[in-house]
């Protein structure tokens, strides 16, 4: 197994690890961090597999996609953190109310 695939598998691992965190933790900050870990996993898969051309330079298209993806992730994280602070101010806790699930 070559190095790009190793990194890509790590990316898959991060994705699943983040997913686990998103489900099991209640605190919103942890959930937001978990989403970011999932995102890093996806970005790692994109970037790592771009270097499958042997000695050739990596494919630039996934790199550009990842830069776009990072900006989107930063934006989403900023909005999520702002919303979390407002939820905390409104309810006293940075957790989602558990009862409203049906």
């Amino acid at each position: 197994m070559s190095v790009p695939f190793l990194y890509a598998l790590v990316g898959i691992g991060l994705f699943c690890l983040g997913f686990h965190g998103l489900i099991v933790y209640d605190h919103l900050l942890r959930k937001i961090l978990a989403i970011n870990i999932m995102g890093s996993g996806v970005f790692l898969v994109l970037v790592a597999l771009a270097k499958r051309g042997g000695e050739a330079a990596p494919d630039p298209v996934p790199h550009a996609m990842v830069i776009t993806g990072i900006v989107v992730a930063v934006s989403a994280t900023a909005l999520a953190l702002g919303l979390m602070l407002k939820v905390q101010a409104a309810t006293g806790h940075a957790v989602l109310p558990g009862k409203s699930r049906d």
Binding site: F15, M38, V42, G69, A76, A80, V87, L96
Partner: peptide, 21 residues
């Protein structure tokens, strides 16, 4: 509205990431 929006945001981000992968 704030807690509804928060839950919505987490769900929609999770959905987008699965799509992106």
């Amino acid at each position: 509205a704030l807690t509804g929006a928060m839950r919505y945001l987490l769900a929609t981000l999770l959905g987008s990431l699965a799509y992106l992968l």
